[in-house]
Design a protein around this nucleic acid. Sequence first.
DNA 1: GCCGTTTTCGGCCCGACTGTTTTCAGTCG
Length: 585
Amino acid sequence: MPVHNADIARVFEDIADLLEISEANPFRVRAYRNAARTIGDVRLDLAAAIGSGKEIPKLPGIGADLDAKIHEIASTGTCALLEKLKKQLPPAITELLKIPGLGPKRVKALHEALDIDTLPQLLEAARKGKIRDLPGFGAKTEAHIVEAVQARLGQAKRFKLAVAAQYAQPLAAYLRGAKGAREVVIAGSYRRMKETVGDIDILVTAAAGAPVMERFVKYPEVREVLSKGDTRASVLLTCGLQVDLRAVPPESFGAALHYFTGSKAHNIAIRRLAQDRGLKLNEYGVFKGETRVAGETEESVFASVDLPWISPELREDRGEIEAARRGELPRLVERGDLRGDLHLHTKASDGRSSLREMALAAKARGLDYIAVTEHSQRETQAHGLDSARLLKQLGEIDRLNAELKGITILKGTEVDILEDGSLDFPDSVLAKLDVVVAAVHARFNLPRAQQTARILKALDNPYVSILAHPSGRLIDEREPYEVDMQAVIRRAKARGIALELNAHPDRLDLDDIAARMAKEEGARVAINSDAHSVHDFENLAFGVGQARRGWLEARDVLNARPLAEVRKLLARAEPAAPRRRRARE
DNA sequence: GCCGTTTTCGGCCCGACTGTTTTCAGTCG
């Protein structure tokens, strides 16, 4: 079984959880958590690198001990420390930490006093009233535990960004009507354009917070008020989404916005910089002693630690602070940079709008060109086109191009990559097209080596121009298939093929990490809507958000280029590289 | 467990709210 970075990260998370319950040095616990996060973010496949005898680069927060443990996990899948901890504490106990209100101290107390190690045991004890009498617990805590465990066993999950937006925006508009409210901003992971959000953080500036909190908890969609003070309140909406509201005075706006935008890791890193300069940074401002020296704007907060303003999408402590210090922040791609859209469908396959409607909608949204890329014949459930229907569509495109002004329709297909890596249309058909988007739509469960070989073979087809949704994942629904993404990206780069960043909120594939890998490998990315109706062009904004999280600039994005240039790049398909005999030279 | 132009030892981000307390620990973000 290959060990992925996520597996190593999970071992470290488990160690951190178990150490925490054992009341180990909290800074040691933090070291494991930081390492887990770093490894989860790193783009190099650590186990693969170690397996091939390569040195792994120095990673921040990982010293000699953790480096040795990474090697141990890479070769064995686990590590002796974790196994030792599991003998001292039942591993399932870490589940209890996920119950809101339960931290390491209480979990330890429950384990020692009542022998509770699992969520069902916890629920049973709480229902029987056994918990209220423990020191530090009470009847209210017990009731909360019952609810929280039931919620967790039932659903409790993160919300896709696009879904969260549908609830958050009307709520923010409602709060703008609160007495004394000035700025109302949705901050948190929403502002960082994370693909899913666990909750919504809203920041309000007001001279007095109380009236805003009053209005907040009266919002018609509030199912439950979780907490409420004068400056802070949390509610659960009927849809299950938690919303945290904070109110600060107007002069604290920038500091609070920075604070509540996060990420936590970014904030900690920035605060440390402030500390180095003898400053204290909190949500109310930047302070030298008792004196506020900055905080009205985010720019002033960054300036106080000698940095330029950093875009929210970059604030993950993944190197943005170092890049800012060196003056090497990327000029992130913006929605307005997109000149075209190279993947969309019409009624001819499984779309809901006509080609004419799609073309006019794209034009109305500021695009100069689109590629119509219907499904190929294999996709029968999507009414995929066979060669005859595809060729017939080409005539319709010619007629529309002659008629419509200000928008150009390129001829394309979203052709299936079959199990053996061949394509669902013969080259003779593909040769007639401007854009060939190749996609895996079936056999997601092939072994990693086979899946990788399948996709690499498809990339060697001289007509392929874009690899669609390269990981195949559907957020919260389907895991990505097993594939060597770095090998795929490198082959795409070598062949002049763009990797799609599919902007559909359910996909956002490439994800941020893979998008950044593509950039670093020098491969081009196409931010495509995969629109199935005229409304789906709006999804491009989510794709751009993910691209920005991946540090992409306009120059990295194929469809940020003018049509003439894109045509040149698409035509310049190079012959497949001769297959190398050996892995190493 | 990590880290270092003040340090190889002694630090490690900071504040609000809740519940169980009777002044604060625990948890959360």
